[in-house]
């Protein structure tokens, strides 16, 4: 489990978690939550670490602090790390629907990471591109590039580059009105694609 829901809406959900552990989600990761028999999928687009009184006092009190104490304060925070994901799809009746779910996940619902098989399955369809591109609150270019690269990582051997090319062509079609934005995303994908050659 990655964490639990702090707040949510049909378009996005934010979950909290400790800073401990190796499983801290990364920007662009695909995560999922359950709600009333429906699995919701989101792309992580924001990871926020808020301050609290202890951190403020420590930062204000001393310039020099033992490394062990700093690490202890990091791990035992009183406030959680907040991770926000953009809802891109949900699973209903054994099929993925690329759109918004009927209801958001409720508070404290657990959040789980998606394994590579799920990532490959969900991100095989580029229908989620428009959802990302039309998200005002998200860094759309970065999120799209990160999610596509994540999708490429999960492809079977030899399929990563064709996947990236397919994604690039879909983006070229969707962003034909905005060549600058298209170029920004493709420049993120190109070095990785060439590395797969």
């Amino acid at each position: 489990m990655l964490g639990r829901i702090l707040r949510s809406s049909t378009t996005r959900f934010t979950f909290g978690r400790t800073a401990r552990g190796e499983d801290m989600p990364a920007f662009g990761d695909l995560v999922k939550a359950e709600q009333g028999g429906i699995t919701l999928l989101g792309l992580v687009y924001e990871i926020a670490i808020a301050d609290d009184p202890f951190v403020r006092q420590i930062v204000a009190a001393s310039d020099t602090m033992a490394a062990e104490r700093v690490e202890d304060m990091r791990q035992r925070r009183q406030v959680p790390v907040e991770v926000t994901a953009l809802t891109i799809a949900f699973r209903q009746a054994d099929r993925w629907v690329y759109g918004l779910p009927p209801r958001p996940p409720t508070a404290l619902q657990p959040i789980w990471p998606c394994d590579c098989e799920e990532v490959r399955d969900v991100l095989a369809d580029f229908a989620f591109f428009r959802r990302v591109l039309t998200c005002d609150a998200c860094p759309a270019e970065e999120l799209l590039a990160a999610s596509v690269l994540r999708g490429a990582e999960c492809q079977p051997p030899g399929q990563a580059r064709p996947y990236l090319v397919r994604a690039g062509r879909t983006l070229a079609r969707l962003l034909s009105h905005d060549p600058a934005q298209l170029d920004a995303i493709l420049r993120r994908l190109a070095p990785v694609a060439e590395a797969y050659s």
């Binding site: 060549p179 994908l189 060439e194």
Partner: peptide
Amino acid sequence: TQPFMREVHLGAS
């Protein structure tokens, strides 16, 4: 200059 960019743009853009 990168083959990937050629593959994407030619025929799409």
